[in-house]
Design a protein around this nucleic acid. Structure first.
Lengths: 218, 218
DNA sequence: ATCGCACGGATTGTTGACAATGTGGTTGAC
DNA sequence: GTCAACCACATTGTCAACAATCCGTGCGAT
């Protein structure tokens, strides 16, 4: 990815607000007052304005006329929906990846997986979570399916908060490693159907973990 | 859909430009000069500006800094990608619909299907195409899966131009009717897996038709 | 003739001010 | 004490002017 050489203010406003939401600096339900954001990020109100419009289209923000915007709150039911949609699209991507992956790309996937095992042994759950994202992103990239990539990226952004918690379910990291292994093996063996099924099973596991959390925190 | 009682200008600008693109009044590749659109639709430039930002996020428009926006051109390869993504998501929707559909909703689907057969006998291909859209939309609505619904709507908008042509392939309408019948039957019988498979097969058929067109117009 | 380069028109990006709208608190009647 | 109408404030929506940038054109040098 090239350097952001000369970003127009509107673009940086979009990226800044987006990052702040994803990083949790702007919490769900929180009001997004244009003037506040404008001062906080040092960009004009117009820039903030179009950034919010784009973020609303993306589903990260909701707004009503004359009443302003706020960070969209995503409940458990919707988090499940998001994961289901991701499962469908990432399964498609896995299918394509299994058809196109070169030996180098497969090796890159295994490398990430080995790092995950390492972090797991070290008890570094946060590191595992980041590598998990990287693994999925790499797989999508290998697939070359730009349409799926765009949609998945949007869904991932919406689900960040929930997705992170699933790894805390007892036994989940181990299971996740196993599921990933199956996906990578299918991609390496150029078996699209198996890769697709493995990806669905994997995200099905994540959904199950998410629902388990929901039951425990009732 | 409720009445657009007191639309803020920005909202109407978005809807107006979007409709113009989908209706083909603004052609792919065409430059979208803000001042022109502003005068044409009788709204301020600011409104056009945020409308274009939203449409870009939606994938209907592409723009470069200081160089303006244009209607995004979607080639055959991307049209296939779009249909593949739709297949994955609508299969998910069909799965849910098969679990939830009430007898009344199933009857509504059959009613649409009967109308399609009628149009087919009358040789009204355009009418068939519209009913086809309605059928898919109804199925998504029945599924109650709002996340999938949102994504599918965006994909449908991007694919309009190509999707329309597929019905012109010889024998395609007949085949389409048969595929639809299988989908509805599965939903009626509350067989999620079969409904999912039937939907994938159906959109697979559309993809095949699209590729057939591509070969013939080389 | 070709290439580099500056200039001018067209268009977008940004700014500030103003109008329209929602919100919350206050007042007054009953 | 309760309720409705009103009023000031905060915030968003809209507008017009200005600055920044791109693109084509013509000029001059080689």
């Amino acid at each position: 990815m090239a350097v952001t050489e000369r970003a127009t203010e509107t673009q940086s406003a979009y990226l800044l607000v987006r990052r702040a939401i994803l990083a949790g600096e702007l919490l769900p339900g929180q009001r997004l007052v244009e003037k506040e954001l404008s001062e906080r990020f040092g960009v004009g109100r117009a820039a903030i304005r179009t950034a919010l419009a784009r973020l609303e289209q993306e589903g990260l923000v909701e707004s009503e006329p004359f009443r302003g915007a706020r960070v969209r709150t995503i409940g458990e039911a919707e988090a499940v929906e998001i994961l289901e949609a991701r499962a469908a699209l990432e399964a498609l991507a896995a299918h394509h990846a299994a058809q196109k992956a070169t030996p180098e790309q497969v090796e890159a996937l295994w490398a990430i997986h080995r790092q995950m095992e390492e972090r797991h042994r070290g008890g570094d759950l946060l590191g595992m979570s980041e590598l998990n994202s990287l693994l999925h992103r790499t797989l999508v990239e290998i697939s070359g399916h730009q349409t799926a990539a765009r949609l998945i990226e949007g869904l991932r952004a919406q689900g960040v908060r929930h997705q992170f918690h699933t790894i805390l379910v007892p036994g989940r990291p181990q299971q996740s490693l196993e599921e990933h292994r199956r996906i990578i093996a299918a991609v390496a063996a150029h078996q699209p159907e198996e890769a697709e099924a493995a990806m669905k099973a994997h995200l099905g596991g994540v959904i199950a973990a998410l629902k388990r959390i929901g039951r425990s925190t009732l």
